[in-house]
Computed example of a mutant assay.
Amino acid sequence: MEAKPPLPPFTQETAAQKVRLAEDAWNTRDPDRVVLVYTDDTRWRNRAEFPVGREQVRQFLVRKWAKELDYRLIKELWACSGNRIAVRFAYEYHDNTGQWFRAYGNENWEFNDQGFMMRRYASINDLAIKESERKYFWPLGRRPEDHPGLSDLEL
């Protein structure tokens, strides 16, 4: 299996790179691409779901992005040590009725020596917002370099 740099043990710099790569992948909303950064036997907790393995994760992501429309995500490094990274994030989306939401969360990640994520534990809360309260306006896809991050947006 080919490595997925940056590799552990992480520094602040390499952990921040790993976080941005994850953000970029998730902003594609392409489950087939996103699952390639996880081990074949990855274990997740995402809200009240517990997918195990790439295929269950892929199915989870297909369901997620079918419901969370116009999804845009920002992640930020919180802490790192060895092969673990803690992340905080917020994303915006709307449902099929047009109601907008901002989801706030924290993730704990654990990587193998080749840089693939073995564990992902996420706690997430959704807040209904008015469309006028949205803060993420870049075109769907990668967040532009000049777009503010979470701390800059005071999220």
Rank of each mutant, 00 (worst) to 15 (best):
F89E: 12
G149F: 00
D70Y: 00
Q59M: 06
E23I: 06
I85S: 00
Q59V: 05
P148V: 12
A25G: 11
Y38N: 15
W78Y: 13
C80D: 00
N27R: 06
D95W: 01
E92A: 00
R143S: 06
G105Y: 00
W138H: 10
R58I: 02
K18V: 10
D40N: 11
P8F: 02
Y121M: 15
D32S: 11
L61D: 06
W78R: 12
R54T: 10
K67I: 11
P139L: 15
D41A: 14
T14C: 07
L21P: 01
L21T: 02
L127V: 13
P51F: 03
W138Y: 07
D113V: 12
K135I: 14
T11H: 02
N83Y: 08
A86N: 06
E49T: 14
R134A: 11
Y71M: 08
F137C: 09
G53Y: 06
R63Y: 05
L155I: 15
P31H: 02
R45H: 02
K130H: 08
Y93W: 11
T14D: 04
M1S: 11
I129R: 03
L69G: 07
H94A: 07
D152S: 15
P148H: 09
P31R: 01
Y38D: 10
P9S: 02
K64F: 07
D40Y: 07
D40F: 07
R134H: 10
Q99P: 01
N96S: 15
A48N: 09
E110S: 14
G149A: 04
R54S: 08
S81K: 12
L77S: 02
A122L: 10
E92P: 01
L140C: 07
E76V: 10
S123C: 07
Y91D: 09
T97N: 07
R20V: 15
V37L: 06
T39C: 12
H147C: 12
D95R: 04
L21W: 02
Q12E: 09
E145Y: 05
Y91E: 09
E68R: 09
E13V: 14
R29C: 14
G105T: 05
N46M: 10
R20Y: 08
L77N: 01
V52R: 13
V19D: 01
Q17R: 10
E68N: 05
R43M: 09
R72F: 03
G141P: 01
E154K: 12
A122N: 11
K67N: 14
A90L: 01
T28L: 07
E131K: 14
C80G: 00
G98T: 06
L153Y: 01
L150S: 00
D126C: 03
W44D: 11
A25D: 10
